[in-house]
Design a protein around this nucleic acid. Structure first.
Length: 257
DNA sequence: ATGGTTGTTCCACAA
């Protein structure tokens, strides 16, 4: 089963790219972030016509996450537990195919001297709690998304210049590492050894894409039961090179059924 | 270059 994650930066602005990518790459499950759509405005028809079932946690203008799957989708959660007052659409979890999956859009957290950074760190704490609960189920689960965290300096083009960015700050990395230490596997790093300079996001500004000035912030975390079935994990840079691209590119895993 | 670009929406705000 191929499971991919992609922050599309508006599913409406990116619809032609999403359709082309579904045709070309044929993911069994696609975890999308920043759809910037609600249930009412999500382009269900063209995506459904490609053979995908759709589940979303939507929001107007900002955020929004979706699960597309060639298999039936049984939604478990449309929000991350732990804060009933959090109204940002950043999490959806479901059973589909042979795994439990989630699409995650972690808060960016910039600027770091604002309440946005505090919100990010609290969100990471909530995710830590939830991953702990999920591990108790002993399910094979796949948590894909835009984590807005570079796990370490190998995952950033200019770690010195960007040291104070919320995606590189030690507090963000420590909180991310604490989740891994529960016993989930970050698929790309697990299969790519000490490789560095491989990115999943490039800023629109300052010619970052052409200079390959990026960050690796889109990740897929696997439970032990899913990691046992892991056969491949890659970053697919192709869609980032298309005209009018999202600033992120897809990351995918193949797990045995 | 304390800049730069994109998306949504209505105009600044988030990234």
């Amino acid at each position: 089963m191929k499971i991919a994650t992609w922050n599309v930066n508006s599913v409406k602005a990116r619809l032609e790219h999403v359709l082309r990518w579904l045709d070309d790459f044929q993911p069994d499950v696609a975890l999308l972030q920043e759809i910037k759509s609600t249930e009412e405005t999500f382009p269900r028809e063209p995506i459904g016509d490609k053979g995908y079932n759709i589940a979303i946690s939507g929001q107007k203008t900002y955020n929004g996450v979706a699960i597309l799957s060639k298999y039936p989708i049984d939604v478990e959660l449309t929000a991350l537990p732990g804060d009933a007052n959090d109204d940002q659409a950043r999490y959806i979890e479901a059973f589909t195919g042979s795994a439990r999956v989630a699409s995650i859009y972690l808060p960016n957290g910039n600027p770091t001297d604002s309440e946005k950074f505090t919100y990010k760190l609290k969100w990471l704490e909530r995710l830590h709690k939830h991953v702990g609960d999920l591990l108790k189920t002993e399910d094979a689960f796949v948590l894909g998304g835009d984590y807005n965290v570079t796990p370490d300096d190998r995952d950033a083009f200019d770690p010195v210049g960007w040291a104070n960015d919320a995606q590189l700050r030690p507090e963000s990395r420590a909180a991310f590492r604490k989740i891994l230490h529960l016993g989930v596997v970050e698929a790309w790093r697990a299969l790519h050894g000490g490789e560095e300079g491989k990115y999943s996001w490039w800023d629109y500004r300052a010619g970052a894409w052409n200079k390959d000035n990026g960050l690796r912030i889109d990740h897929i975390l696997l439970s032990p039961q899913a990691a046992d079935r892991l056969v491949a994990c890659e970053i697919d840079k192709t869609p980032r090179g298309w005209e009018k691209a999202s600033d992120h590119t897809p990351v995918w895993v193949e797990i045995e059924d």
